[in-house]
Design a protein around this nucleic acid. Structure first.
Lengths: 219, 219
DNA sequence: CAACTATTCAAGTGATTACTTGAATATTAA
DNA sequence: TTAATATTCAAGTAATCACTTGAATAGTTG
């Protein structure tokens, strides 16, 4: 085959990955998978898609090499094919933030308090947590927490935060995190804690980024 | 709007970028643009697409925030929106290489000598070039060379290499580069030089990656 | 001004996509 | 074995996509 042929075929392969990333539902599935492996049914529930539709999207992701599967009993568990996929999603986000005006508008509309919540970088949190200076709070659903979390983090899903406020009365600063830099759960948790006079900030990114940076995790 | 609404709208925006990356012709356009800014007509010629078709693809890339335009006289010049876009393309390549069997097959079919051509990392080339230990050879078309190249590199497009072999008789090692890690021009140049007994290697990546790494360039 | 050129726009065609619905497959439990 | 369950497959529909063709637009040049 010709030189042109090789180049074009190569681009055609790269485009398969682009295609996989070209649908909002598939991106949402990838975000859930970035938290840890999950079954089709559980993903369907999380994304509110039908099971058949979810299955089809997942198969496309698999064909694009972004996820792998493992069958156990009746269930098929999907997981990301590697940490490069998290990097890929991160830079996709990054480019979108930098060059799509609509993203800026959305973020500033929904996350107005973004700057005020003083995000703390991952490295800094790691040191402070080691010194026992902060309480790390994971506000994702329990399912995602138990698939892996920041060492020592306690899990209080956002919905239960109000009821369990008494767990944070010791004056230590709280650092909350969730699924990623745009995940609102952490924003809302920090806002809620502060409204009760508890000192709180949020982690700059989420759990997948933490893991992809090679920082220690716990299960 | 609801929490769900925000998340979904955000993913819809990210998906716009995925859509832009979902077509082989658009990816090829991006690769050309990674060499430097170019007019619609010149891109149409390079990709062998019709002008109207090229224009439409470029507009899609612009709407996805990946390229920007500048009008000068009759011509509209397109260029990448930023270095993050090169990063994005790089990691797309990376994921494809790591997880798509078809890419591996293509690369090993066409670039069989890949390992034997001993790629040299960018940092190492920079040092050796500064010490005058190597001759840097840019085998891209003159148009791309003149939009920016590695400092001190000489430009001999592949087609003219045979005729100009006498320029490389001084015993210095040659390091050839072109558009990117999979660009065959540099592979073929190294193979040709070696077949004439000239010591030659290739740069690990291409010019866009060099530039994106923040290494010095020249115009 | 008119003639020329690069780019964009608009309309049409066949192919592909996302989603739904209902059936098929494979595994486990009774 | 049968019944139950998670997932996948297959077929159909409306929407979107890539590309072509020919016309419209906006600059430049004589």
């Amino acid at each position: 085959m010709s030189r042109q042929g090789f180049k074009h075929q190569l681009f055609e392969q790269f485009a398969r990955i682009g295609k996989a990333l070209s649908n909002a539902n598939r991106l949402e599935l990838l975000e859930f998978l970035a938290q840890g492996e999950r079954s089709v049914e559980s993903l369907a529930k999380a994304t509110k898609l039908t099971v058949a539709n979810t299955s089809q999207h997942l198969q496309q992701l698999r064909q694009a090499g972004l996820v792998t599967t493992r069958k156990q009993g009746l269930r098929v568990y999907y997981q990301l094919a590697g940490d490069e996929v998290i990097q890929l999603l991160g830079i996709l986000r990054n480019v979108a933030e930098g060059h799509l005006a609509e993203v800026e508008r959305l973020v500033s509309t929904y996350l107005t308090v973004k700057d005020k919540l003083e995000p703390i970088p991952a490295q800094e949190l790691l040191e402070r947590a080691r010194n026992g200076m902060v309480t790390v709070l994971d506000v994702r659903p329990e399912e995602e927490y138990s698939a892996g979390h920041v060492p020592g983090a306690i899990n209080v899903p956002l919905a239960q935060l109000e009821k369990q406020l008494d767990r944070f009365g010791d004056g230590k600063e709280i650092v909350a995190y969730c699924r990623g830099p745009h995940c609102i759960l952490a924003f809302e948790a920090v806002a809620k804690l502060r409204s009760h006079g508890i000192k709180a900030r949020r982690l700059e990114n989420g759990y997948p980024e933490w893991k992809a940076m090679g920082l220690p995790t716990e299960q």
